[in-house]
Simulated assay, not measured.
Amino acid sequence: MTLAPDQIERDVFQYQRMRDVAERLQDSVPGKLEITLEGIVHDMMSPGGPHELTAARVSRRLEKVMPEGLLAHTGTPDVEDIARGVLRHPDVMVISEKDMEVEGPFDPRSLVAAIEVVSRSNPDNDWVGKIRDYPLLGIPLYVIFDPRTGEGAVFSEIHPTASGPRYASRKDFVYGEDVTIGEWTISTENLPRYS
């Protein structure tokens, strides 16, 4: 789909208004706010122990096998594409230290991979919304760890479709197996599950 310049400006203006609302609300609501093509997404619960422990263990395991200069970052800032009207916050971002030397949100195209730990309160955000948004943002690898089921998936190979860019490849795994993320393989042993 092609947008005329006045449509792009209107979309950027609308996105900026949503971003302003999300920033004002973020400190007064539990959980986190993200902006998608469909509007503001509110993941109502703050991540709990199993969620955060999964992100930390995945991050540490990746950093042990990745080369110097790459990080499996679990902090802020968000990734943002103003032109596409999307603001997301991956649980773990594989990104070079050099690409982190910016003020404000990271450019999503600088990420090597986005990794999400499925939240208990809004699993569709990870299994539906981010599968749509991350290839649109140009993130080449998207990995999901799901503590609800003890399973996950690695999505790769962005290709064009009639409804926009999508991942062409999906490789499922179960906790206990090794998983390959890009060039690196890590164990999924001892990842916590939701009770």
Results as ranks from 00 to 15, higher is better:
Lys98Cys: 00
Pro5Leu: 04
Arg132Asn: 10
Trp184Pro: 04
Ile95Phe: 06
Pro140Trp: 02
Gly164Met: 12
Leu71Ser: 13
Pro108Gln: 11
Ile139Lys: 10
Ser119Trp: 09
Leu62Trp: 09
Glu103Lys: 15
Ala22Asn: 11
Val58Trp: 03
Ala113Val: 04
His89Phe: 03
His89Arg: 15
Ile95Cys: 09
Pro30Ser: 14
Glu157Val: 00
Glu151Met: 06
Asp20Thr: 11
Pro135Gln: 10
Trp127His: 15
Ser28Tyr: 13
Lys171Trp: 00
Asp146Pro: 07
Lys32Gly: 02
Pro47Gln: 09
Val179Trp: 03
Arg193His: 14
Leu53Gly: 03
Phe155Met: 09
Leu33Arg: 12
Ala22Gly: 08
Glu34Leu: 08
Pro160Ser: 12
Lys130Arg: 15
Thr149Ala: 07
Gly48Trp: 04
Asp6Trp: 08
Arg120Gly: 00
Ser121Pro: 08
Asp6Glu: 15
Leu3Trp: 14
Arg60Gln: 14
Gly48Ala: 13
Tyr134Ser: 05
Leu3Gly: 03
Leu37Ile: 06
Arg132Asp: 13
Ala22His: 08
Gly164Cys: 12
Thr36Ile: 01
Ser156Arg: 15
Asp124Val: 00
Glu177Gly: 05
Ile131Tyr: 01
Ala168Trp: 00
Val92Thr: 11
Gln14Trp: 02
Val112Thr: 14
Gly104Cys: 07
Arg10Lys: 15
Gly138Lys: 04
Arg24Phe: 01
Arg88Thr: 01
Gly85Thr: 05
Thr54Val: 07
Gln7Ser: 13
Leu53Pro: 00
Asp124Ser: 14
Asp91His: 03
Ala114Lys: 10
Ala153Gly: 13
Phe13Pro: 01
Ser195Tyr: 06
Leu137Lys: 05
Gln26Leu: 00
Asp43Gly: 00
Ala72Ser: 11
Gln7Ile: 03
Leu33Tyr: 05
Glu103Pro: 02
Ser121Gln: 06
Val143Tyr: 06
Ser156Met: 04
Glu97His: 02
Asp178Leu: 02
Ile115Gln: 07
Val179Met: 10
Ala153Lys: 13
Val29Arg: 13
Gly150Trp: 04
Asp78His: 07
Thr54Gly: 07
Ser28Asn: 13
Asp172Pro: 09
Thr36Phe: 08
Glu23Asn: 13
Leu137Arg: 03
Arg193Trp: 04
Lys98Val: 04
Asp27Met: 02
Asp78Lys: 05
Phe155Gln: 04
Gly39Ile: 02
Glu80Ser: 05
Ile115His: 05
Tyr142Asn: 11
Leu33Ser: 09
Leu141Arg: 12
Arg61Leu: 08
Lys171Arg: 15
Tyr134Phe: 14
His51Lys: 08
Leu141Thr: 11
Gly85Asp: 08
Val79Gly: 04
Ile35Phe: 03
Pro135Gly: 07
Gly152Ile: 02
Leu62Pro: 12
Leu25Pro: 02
Glu9Ser: 11
Val112Ile: 11
Lys64Leu: 12
Asp178Val: 00
Asp99Ile: 00
Val174Asp: 12
Met100Ser: 09
Thr149Met: 07
Ile131Pro: 01
Val143Cys: 09
Lys32Phe: 00
Tyr167Asp: 10
Gly85Met: 05
Ala56Asp: 12
Phe173Pro: 04
Asp133Tyr: 05
Ala168Met: 00
Glu52Cys: 03
Tyr175Gln: 10
Asp172Lys: 13
Lys171Pro: 01
